[in-house]
């Protein structure tokens, strides 16, 4: 039988981080089945090492660092072929309820494209902030850098996006 406290601890961490983690991996890879594989793998690792991780201050950081290692492990293997196909994103954009508003949809598409064109560091910081909603401090911890660098890169990335859409926003 599965021990009750283990499953409770796991479920607490799992529910808290499943969506931010899923969105991070998905945005980094743009590949649904690969994202699912990595997420499953990371949560299985979490379950296996729960007793160790429970003692560390933030299990979320552990989850993101583990997922990040898997993502970059995959990217290294793939040697980052820059396929900027947006199929997945278009398919995704169709199920949002603001799609009637042409202008909003246009901004969304523009931003999606711009995110793909960002340099790797800025893109990752932007994803961790906007898709996973992590704080500057958490992002800095995951990337092994300091808060100031995270802030600087994030602000510059956003500034570029704002420049792109400024003519559409009145």
């Amino acid at each position: 039988m599965i021990r009750a406290d283990t499953i409770i601890n796991f479920t607490l961490v799992y529910n808290l981080y499943k969506k931010p983690l899923y969105n991070y991996v998905w945005k980094m890879l743009n590949d649904k089945s690969l994202t699912e594989d990595i997420i499953q793998n990371v949560f299985l690792k979490l379950f296996k090492n729960l007793s160790v991780i429970k003692n560390c201050s933030n299990p979320g950081n552990w989850l993101f660092i583990t997922a990040r290692n898997e993502v970059f492990g995959y990217l290294r293997k793939k040697e980052i072929r820059n396929e900027n196909f947006m199929d997945e994103d278009f398919e995704f954009a169709s199920d949002i309820n603001v799609v009637n508003d042409v202008e909003v949809a246009e901004i969304k598409n523009l931003i999606e494209k711009e995110i793909e064109n960002m340099d790797e560091d800025s893109k990752e910081i932007f994803i961790l902030r906007e898709y996973s909603e992590l704080s500057y401090h958490e992002i800095a911890h995951i990337l092994g850098t300091d808060d100031g660098i995270v802030k600087g890169r994030l602000f510059r990335a956003r500034q570029r996006l704002i420049d792109k859409i400024s003519k559409l926003v009145r």
């Binding site: 599965i2 796991f10 799992y14 499943k18 969506k19 899923y22 969105n23 998905w26 699912e36 997420i39 499953q40 949560f43 299985l44 379950f47 995704f92 954009a93 949002i96 909003v104 901004i107 969304k108 931003i111 906007e130 898709y131 956003r158 996006l161 704002i162 859409i165 400024s166 559409l168 926003v169």
Partner: peptide, 27 residues
């Protein structure tokens, strides 16, 4: 306003129920 437009244009995916099922059954 532009910053708000950028932030609100981010579309987050829901966690797939099938994946959840898969994770718990493999656990």
């Amino acid at each position: 306003r532009a910053l708000n437009a950028v932030i609100s244009s981010v579309i987050k995916k829901e966690f797939p129920a099938i994946l959840e099922k898969k994770i718990f059954s493999s656990l």
